[in-house]
Each structure stands twice: as C-alpha cells, then as structure tokens.
C-alpha cells in the first residue's frame, strides 16, 4: 500500500513537472479507463438484457443465435399487451395532469412575489422528490381507503400525478426564474391583456421546459412499480407489475423483449427532453450574452 502510494506520488510529481495542466484535460489512458468502467457499471446489465432479448434459444442462459422469436411471441401475449396499454394510458393522463398542475405551481412560486407561506410551499412541493416511494404509495393507499376510492386505473393515475407534478414544477420553475420579466411588461405595454401576454409571450418561451417536464413525467409514470403496486387493483395491471409477476414465475426470454422495448421508449423520450432543454439553455445564453446591458 505504502509502496503504491509513494510510486503514485513520484509519478504525479514527474507529471506535474512535465505538463501538469494540459494533462488533466487531455484524453489520457486514465480518463478512458474511468469512463469505460463507469459506463460498463451502468450499462452492462442492460446490454445483457437487450442482447438476450434477441436470443433464439428457449433457455435464458444459453446463447442460441440471433432471433426475433420472442418479439413475435410477445404479440400473442394478450395480458402483456393489455398491461402495456394500461401503462401508456396512465402515463399519458398523469403526465398531462401533472404538467398542468406543475406549471401552474411553478408560475405561482415565481410570480406572486413573496406571498405568505411561499417558503414552506416551495419546500413542500419538492417533498415527493426526496420522499421514499414506499411512503408515498402507502400514504396514497391509506387515503384511497379512507375516502373509499376504488383502487385501480384512476387511483394510480392520481397517484402518478402526485409523484410527477413536483418534477414538472422544478423544471418549469428553473426556466421561469431566468425569464426576463420586461418581456411581459413589453407585451402589456404594446396592448396585451395579462391573459394574452401569457398566451403570446410567456407560454411560447417556456413551452420547451413544459414539454421536457411532460416527457419526464411520462417516463416516471411508465417506469413506476412501487406506487402502482399500492394503488392499482384487478383489471388495471401496469406493465412493470405484469413483468414483475411474470418474473416471479421464472424469467422468460419474452420478458427480455418487453423490457428492451420499454428501455427504447424511455430512452427516446429522455433524449428528446434533454435535447429540448439543452437547445433552450443555449438560445437563452446567447440571448443573455447579447441582451445584457454593459
């Protein structure tokens, strides 16, 4: 241990002597190794799952050549397809509801100045971000039982709205915080009522953030297992629950196929969302650089 340390020290010293600063930013062997290790840690399990979804063999552990067999079989699994439609419907509904509520909350938090209770409110809206899902799920279950609300599709839709609303609020609020208020004043000065100002100026400018929020909410709802397991009932089995119950009876290659499809959908949405917000951040920066008075 000591030997390694001292060896490292001398190496570091010589490195520092020769070219310390550029060395840290260049594509060194160390950096490549670090990135490879990190990516492998994150994506190796997923890669194996994806790979085995194309496995021709019936056994999960033995490679039997490339095949789309399990995807074809998936088409005939009506229970799985039904679960997929349920999950899709849930995600569409809860993402849309959460986007409307979350955007309104973000507007209120950034716009209505310092109203009484603003600080607790803004802290409270982020609570579901950090609360364990088990607790949210249990709390919702108790609520639904208390008000005698049937567990099933609508209960889960409301639960997912609760979960994803705060994510939308956080994303939209970040956009609104660096929104130039004089743009809205300019619109009013030019003859727009507050509502028209919102529709013609504010909304077009924050719509990328809203879209990104919607997509994140959509994927969160699609992925959720824990909360749905508390709130769903017979006839409203979501895809993650269906997969889990199937896996308990033994991993079938078909499961790999449905999981691969889910990964593809989520990855597509996440990439789109991040591209949207990145493009927006860039144009915002450019505008700020040009617009800043000296």
């Amino acid at each position: 241990m000591i030997a390694i340390k001292s060896a490292f020290k001398t190496k570091a010293k010589t490195a520092a002597k020769t070219a310390a600063a550029p060395r840290l930013t260049s594509i060194s062997r160390f950096n490549i190794a670090a990135i490879s290790a990190g990516l492998a840690f994150l994506y190796l399990p997923i890669a194996i799952l994806v790979l085995y979804s194309f496995n021709g063999s019936r056994s999960v552990a033995v490679w039997g050549g490339w095949s789309l067999r399990w995807y074809r079989e998936l088409l005939h699994d009506s229970a799985m397809i039904e679960a997929a439609w349920t999950s899709l419907g849930l995600a569409l509904f809860s993402a849309s509801a959460a986007t409307i509520l979350g955007t309104l909350a973000a507007l209120a938090l950034t716009r209505i100045g310092r109203f009484r209770g603003r600080l607790p409110f803004s802290a409270m809206i982020y609570a579901p971000l950090v609360l364990p899902e088990v607790i949210i799920g249990l709390a919702l279950l108790l609520l639904f039982v208390a008000v005698d609300f049937d567990r099933g599709f609508w209960a889960t839709a409301l639960a997912h709205t609760t979960l994803t609303l705060c994510f939308v609020a956080a994303i939209v609020q970040a956009r609104l915080v660096d929104f130039d208020r004089s743009l809205e004043e300019a619109a009013m000065d030019l003859g727009c009522s507050p509502l028209r100002t919102f529709l013609t100026v504010t909304l077009p400018l924050i719509v990328p953030a809203i879209a990104a929020g919607w997509m994140l909410a959509f994927t969160l709802s699609l992925d959720d297992f824990v909360i749905a397991s508390f709130t769903t009932g017979p006839g409203a089995t979501t895809l993650p629950i269906r997969i889990y119950s199937q896996v308990r009876l033994g991993v079938k290659p078909e499961t790999n196929a449905i999981c691969t499809l889910m990964i593809a959908v989520v990855a597509l949405i996440v990439v789109t969302a991040s591209l949207l917000s990145k493009r927006y951040a860039m144009s915002g920066e450019r505008a700020a650089a040009l617009g800043a008075p000296m």
Partner: peptide, 30 residues
C-alpha cells in the same frame, strides 16, 4: 388605467425584444 389601455409606449432598457419573433413580428406585435 392598466398599461395595455394607455396610449403610451415604452422602450425598455434591455429592449425586451421577443426572442421567438422575427424583427417584423416584433414590430407588428403591438
């Protein structure tokens, strides 16, 4: 009277041009 009902117009220090509209769109806005 609210700002949108006053026959008064203002040029803002930051100019406050609408970034999502073209030059012509900005001028036509009012």
């Amino acid at each position: 009277l609210p700002p949108y009902l006053r026959p008064v117009n203002m040029m803002f220090q930051s100019y406050a041009l609408f970034p999502h509209l073209s030059v012509a769109g900005n001028v036509a806005f009012g």
